[in-house]
Write a protein that binds this DNA or RNA. Sequence first.
DNA 1: CCAACGCATGGGG
DNA 2: TCCCCATGCGTTG
Length: 908
Amino acid sequence: MSSSAAPSSATKVCFNTNCNQFVERPKKGWRRRTGEFADLCDRCASAYDDGKFCETFHLKTSGWRSCESCGKQIHCGCIVSFHTFVLLDAGGIECLSCARKSFILTPNPAWPPPSLFHPLQPERIKDVTNWNPIAGSGPVPWRQAPSLFNGSAIQNELQPRTPFLDATGSVDRLCLGERPSASSSDNNRKDSCEKLMNGKLKIGVPGTLENGYAGLNHEEPPKSCISGPPQLSYAKNDLSAPSFSLTIGSACKNEPTDHSKVSVSLQQQTTLSTPLGKQLGGHATVDYAGETQVRNSKTRGDGRGKHHLLPRYWPRITDEELQQISGDSNSVITPLFEKMLSASDAGRIGRLVLPKKCAEAYFPPISNPEGLPLKVQDLKGKEWMFQFRFWPNNNSRMYVLEGVTPCIQSMQLQAGDIVTFSRIEPEGKLVMGCRKASTTLTADQGSEACSNSNGVVTNGNVNTKSTKFSEEVLENSTKKGFSSTTHVAPADSTIAWAETKMSDDMATEFIGNNRSIRCKRKSSTLGSKSKRLRIDNEDLVELKVTVVQAQGLMRPPSSDAPTVIVIEGCEFEEYEQDAPIIGRPAIPSVDHSGEKIQWVQCEDCFKWRKVPDSALLPSRWTCSENSWDSERSVCSADQELTADHLRDLLPRINKAAKKMKASKQETDVEALDGLDALANLAILDEGETLPASSQATTKHPRHRPGCTCIVCIQPPSGKGPKHKQSCDCIVCKSVKRRFKTLMLKREKKLSEKEAEAACQKLQPQLAGQLLDAGDIQESNDDAGHFSPQRGELNNEGYADDPNYPNEKKSSALPFKGEIDLNAKPERDDELSPGSDSGSIMRILQVAAEQYVRHCGNGSFTGNHENGDGTGETNPNNCVTVGGTNQTDVDHNRPLSIGTAASLAPNGQ
DNA sequence: CCAACGCATGGGG
DNA sequence: TCCCCATGCGTTG
């Protein structure tokens, strides 16, 4: 590859390695993977402009192939000409001209990654109105499907549906974002190119066309070229230095030589070496669109041509997995898709629901509901025979793999784990891999996996992969920081913190526990109709913890004492000059002399250092800043705190948290939404491991104890006299604005439908509630109301059991119990979270109102709907979602941020 | 009575 | 609003 050895453009040496002349005024050549253009001397640039670069400089190199149609020689495998041909499904290549004639539009994989294109992407690229999903939407076709591109009938069929068919030249653009090398003189083509770009090229992405995988999917563009669609095959042999083989359809089969693929050595090798990096970037080949189209429109009859494959199905296969799949062979692995097992997938029914698009894209077409037996190989090489079939469903189809139970069991998979499907080339065998939930949280997928996963965990196993991920998350969360009130760190970051910041021993313990927390929580999300709602609820718990954690990280600013202002009866501390800083989490303790101290971990070496209790530590603290112990002011110094000691410290903290939780549970738990919430608590208890960060330093030294207000987290500047309700000072404005935002979000979130449903469903309930709260309470017991017994059950993990009777689980709709307790008759409509609830926004509202009631001596109450004016609530309630868990009986009780051990002494 | 099958339902994107 | 898909549930063997 010319780019590899060429000097950087900054040297003003011709980028052409066969030239290397010094150039004073370099001309732009092809687009490099960095996004820059190759600087060429006049001569080389001229050759490039004329489309004769390869002829001139690469004539004697390998890689020349003939266009299957016109026989024109084209240099393949070269970045310069990479975009001048298309790979045919049946093997071979076709020049763009011929491809255009054949309506073969799908360019070779785009390269460089889309992000690199952005600076040069014209605005119009955003205009996707011309985008026709057909060409780009078809998933990678079943490899054995006939090549459709030589069939004129098919082409004809496609033609009317592909308005940009005349834009073949766009391939150049697509790939290089610049002029086509071979046909730059063709103005028409240029225009076409631009049109195409308008339509979709934006994508210049890997996977460019396919399935929305990458190419087309603007809404969910791959994060990088490597996280795209499965068309890039990963050559096992290249593990050490990742490169990708672009295999197209059955090309490999027909031409097992390297002609069938174009190896591209990726620049981002380091990236690629990460699990995420293995997301083989996609590319599309001409046939995808065609075949998909045909299959969709003819065979399947659902020809909507809309095949955006959801990112959650993108294959995320790691090196190891690829290696496992390919074994010792030289096979090229084409990751197809993956799916997180649902409870029913992993259940005993033995049916694995296949994402429709995946099924239609990667599995053989079936027209009979009976389907076909499908041989799938597992990672051990064992072959399984599944029945690939479908059943009609609402004018659509629901694809399933039947008979997967033995396979899933042999892989020891459970709901939440991920199965991956890949294809081995050239054999074309389907391979089913798997990834345990505990190792699935790649950066990209993390959130999703987390939110969707029921994350069954494997005994808190810790492996390097998960740790890596945690580090990534940590890094991300660190970057994001906790300083923003609106930022709610993902739960994972909590875990990440624990995993990465603890000493080894502790990390192990923490990781295990945290994982189990996370995973158990997740596991409770499956197996119920209200799965998604339950996820919401889980999120609430996690939010709460996270905010608690955030609170715990707050440190008063170095400036003078705060100015205390009062807004609507609430006191707020303001720091005129400096906002509170984000402090580093620490573990409060007492040393042998009885002096209060705190343990803090060095950012660099992770060793724990003892610092005075009063020490205010920056978020990034290292041994070098240990001014209290000069001997241990370097990372090389031994850690004073033994692992055992540290181990002792944490349970203590956890106990404190637990105790606090226990006290809260009496009231809060009643407000929890039944089994799931209880399960969450149980999980927390069981895990006993809120990260130290969320517990050890949860005291806000200069703050009103228990204050969780947004002002405290992120105080607005300015000070002033007592604020009146009509005050429009910056503080009040800020608060009001935030509340308004909160409410707007809520409004947005709540569909009318939900509101109606909520009202309707609640009417009877509320009516009954007015009559006899006791009865309701009792009747709601099964509906998820808290009961100690139920709590026990959850502690025993029943709630985690997907097989746990659905009647019970599904009845555990969030807030069924709490609604009764919290709703004021006159405000039922507002307060009722909706019978189907779990709506976080509603919860926020409830929390906000409670807080308002607490702070605002009632003046806020009922005004929040205005979203403005007097109704402003401290939006912090938004984060205090933990409040959800504590939508307690006592309306006057202040909202506290939740379970933080030491954060809010007065917060229950 | 149980398991398997296959369709229906409905939440959510 | 449409579609996907997780899962409920009736039917059948």
